[in-house]
Each structure stands twice: as C-alpha cells, then as structure tokens.
Design a protein around this nucleic acid. Structure first.
Lengths: 202, 202
DNA sequence: TCCCAATGTTGACAACGACAACATAAAGTA
DNA sequence: TACTTTATGTTGTCGTTGTCAACATTGGGA
C-alpha cells in the first residue's frame, strides 16, 4: 500500500485528493464507517493531520465523495449485468454489490450522507434504471411493481448484509454460485403484477 | 424532561440504569446513533461522566440495550397488528414502526450491534412470526416466499427511511392513511408463490 | 455495630474533528 | 528574470469523546 505518484517534492504531494479517497475507501471497508477518521486517512496518505481539509471541507464531505464514486460504480455494474443477463441478473448484481462492499453499500444508503441532494439523485438513478428495465420487460408502465422489485432486492441486500438471514436456506453468501441460487429462489417466489392492482391479495 | 424517581440521596441515584436508557433513547432518536455520547447521556441523567460505566460496560453495550428494548416493542406491535388486521396489517406495522422511530430502527438492524448474538436472535423472532403467519395463511410452508415478504417490507422501510422514495407515488409518509395506502399499493403489486417455484418469472 | 459490595465521583489520557496561523511551492505576470 | 499571487501542506491549539484507574459514599447483611 501507500504507493502511487507521490513524493513529487518533499512538500507537495502531487495527487493528494485521489490518494485520500483511495485510503479512505480502504479504511471504510476495513473498519466500517464509524471507524474512519480523517487523521488516520492523512496518516496513510503520508501527510499531516490537517492536509485533508484542503480537499474536503469536513469528514462527512469525504464520506459523501466516497459514496458518489460508489454510486457511479454501482450504476455501471447494474447496467452491465442487465445487458448480459436481463432483469434477473440486474437484481442479482444489486445484491452482489452490497455483499462485496458491505460498508460502502451501507454508506451509500445510510444516514451519513442523508442531506446530500446530489447523492440522493444518484441513488435515484439506480431506481430509474430498474423502472425502465421493468417497463421494457413488461411492455407497460408498472410503477408500483418496479418499486416493489427495488424494495425486494434492497431489503434482501440489507438482511444479508446484517447477517439476518442464515441457516440452511442461505449457504455461504460469499460464494457467488450459492448467492445466485439463493437470490433466484427468493425472486422466483414472487410474481410482479404489471397491471394496476385492482384487488389486493396476500 | 429529566423527571423520574431520582434524588433518593444526594449520592446514589436510585434508578440510574432506567434513567440512562430513557435519556439515551431520546438522544438517539433526536441526534442519531452517531450523535449519542455517554457523557451527554450522563449529563442528562444528572450524574458524572463515568457513572454509566457502573451499568453498561461500554457505549456499544448501551446501544445494544436500547436495541433489545426496541426489538421487544417491535415484536409486540407486529403481533398486535396481525391480530387486529391479519398479514397485511403486519407488513404495514413493520413499515410504520421504522418510520415512527427511524433511528431506533436503524440501530436495531444496523452494524452498531452486529456482533451481539442475543440481538441477532431477537431480530430472528420478527421473521419467525412472519414465517408462521404466512404458513398459517397459505396452509403450507413457503420459506422463500416468507423471506421475500420480509425482504420486501424491510427494503421498503429502509428506502422510505432514507427518503429514497419521494414524489407523487408516495405522499407524506408521516400521514398514517397515506402510508397505509402506499404500502398497500406496493404490497398489492406482488403475488407470493406458496408452492416451490418450478419455473422462474420476472 | 461493622463491614463490604454496589454505586457514584474525580482525574487522567489518547484520539478525534475542526479552526487559525504559518510555510512552501507552483504558476502567472512584469 | 524578479515579483506576486494562490494553491497546497504544516504546526499548534481547543473542546469533546471513550475508557481506565483510583477514590468516595452508601445501604444492606453478618
């Protein structure tokens, strides 16, 4: 670690902002969101404890930047999965992302960046893509079904993330094949109504 | 605030543990989980900054105790709702609880108490009740459908909590009638398959 | 009555976020 | 080239926090 284009001079770093983001992302994933401290990030980047303030106005701003990068990657992975395997693959990719980078996922959808309007918008894109995908799949608008699908994969992600689902039904969530099978079973146990729900059911 | 059976003597509090829990719960809901500090809790309870350590070995232990009480209440509310209005009412109560006490809900299902085995078990009860309810409703075991139902309401709770769902579809989530209608629409847009899913669908 | 265990207090320490003041280097301008 | 401005990094400091250690007070059982 701690190798990149550094030591331009003894004083100026050369690419500190990127180094800080990289160090911070690693720390978040290793120690959790609460375990991230600006001073530790600065230490890892090899600068003084106050240098980060030249690039991020506050700790939460650094977290927001990490979340923004996360959403960018999230969106790309979801779209790639859908191109490759359709709607079902998109749902699996959603859960897979959450399990592969649990702390990043928690950060992206958690309260740490709640106030950030730009991030809210980025998160909305993840839903917008799903909605569009469902619409094109069903041949018509199905807003509530799209929302239900989103809630389903989102909730599944959270429950797996927090180890609320264990036992025989779910094997090892880290095994992609087992995860794929499990997500398939769960998603396969529901049918989404594309027509407006006239009468309610269980 | 700050009234209860206190001032037994000038020295001993009399019921400090309960006072700490109450003050801490209020603080968590007001300032968020990260905004809770042991010293602030102690201040509110009118004791010195180290008194809480006689009742909780650490900050996270205090949070775990709050979460435990939350799960107790959660379970009671879910069961009461189901008795009154069946399975659909249980789902609505789930979401309603999350929106009525957002920070508590985040605490209960978040990473702050992740390592606590007892809490994991308590959370499992919420699912156990749902599973049993679905089984009795469908007349047979439907483990994956129960899991999907859980994930659906859990994900819906989180998305609403984090204000990820806004706009025309959802009105004001704080209005119980609108929330009820919205949850009904979403839950109504899916059908749960009680038989093992032979063929997959969207 | 005496003692002791439970309970609360005071004091300390290191880590943290944030602010202010200062230092250095790089880029622009003459 | 020489001077100036501005971006970037450093040092010093403050108040707050979690946690540990040592000490004080009290009430209940022997």
């Amino acid at each position: 670690m701690s190798t990149s284009r550094r030591q331009r001079t003894g004083y100026h770093h050369g690419d500190l902002r990127a180094s800080l983001l990289r160090a911070a992302s690693e720390l978040v994933e290793k120690k959790g969101i609460d375990g991230l401290s600006l001073r530790n990030v600065a230490r890892r980047a090899g600068v003084s404890h106050n240098a980060p303030y030249r690039h991020f106005p506050s700790r939460s701003a650094l977290l927001a930047a990490i979340a923004a990068a996360g959403f960018e990657r999230f969106r790309a992975e979801l779209e790639a999965a859908e191109r490759a395997g359709g709607l079902r693959a998109r749902g699996e990719a959603y859960v897979h992302f959450a399990l592969a980078r649990p702390e990043l996922f928690r950060l992206m959808f958690g309260p740490a960046v709640e106030g950030d309007a730009q991030l809210r918008e980025q998160a909305g894109l993840a839903f917008g893509g799903l909605r569009q995908a469902i619409t094109s799949h069903a041949g018509q608008e199905a807003p509530f079904a799209a929302l239900a699908a989103w809630a389903l994969v989102h909730g599944l992600s959270h429950l797996l993330l927090d180890r609320r689902i264990t036992g025989a039904m779910m094997g090892n969530p880290r095994d992609p094949a087992q995860l794929r099978r499990f997500v398939g079973e769960v998603l396969g146990s529901v049918r989404f109504a594309v027509a407006p729900p006239a009468q309610r059911s269980a």
